[in-house]
């Protein structure tokens, strides 16, 4: 899988993370794996963690620690109502952008 350029990722990664968290609460290490499974490639925690902090500061997600039997306590992230609203606003814009990009790509290839 080719590595996506950092600059290209910057504008979309926080929304991708928010969408993953919206599917069910998750923790940092698992989130890296989920991003990889979704096709984003290997993204270092040094890139993801500041975004998680920023989203918490903006009230899009909340974090709370769980004690788990099989390993160390983990901080789990859950989407908030503000986060849901943010996604609702983001998705139409993203769809418009991808439609436009796909049209251009089709023109380039056709």
């Amino acid at each position: 899988m080719a590595k996506i350029e950092t600059q290209m990722l910057k504008g979309t990664l926080d929304n991708a993370i928010l969408m993953i968290i919206a599917q069910g609460e998750t923790y940092g290490y698992a989130l890296l794996q989920q991003l990889q499974d979704a096709g984003f490639g290997v993204i270092p925690e040094g890139t993801v963690y500041p975004l998680l902090l920023k989203m918490q500061r903006n009230g899009l997600i909340v974090a709370h620690r769980h004690a788990i039997a099989t390993g160390p306590d983990r901080k789990y992230y859950r989407i908030t109502a503000a986060g849901e609203a943010h996604l609702q606003a983001f998705l139409p814009q993203w769809k418009q952008l991808t439609t436009a990009m796909n049209r251009l790509i089709a023109g380039q290839e056709g």
Partner: peptide, 30 residues
């Protein structure tokens, strides 16, 4: 959080550098 994940990555055979990133200072500043 960072150490817990680095320990988990180490157990999975991933180095801290590969896990956290090649520019730790920039990430730490962020």
């Amino acid at each position: 959080d960072l150490l817990t994940d680095m320990v988990a990555a180490q157990a999975d055979g991933i180095t801290s550098k590969d896990h956290f990133g090649k520019d730790p200072q920039a990430a730490a500043d962020e």
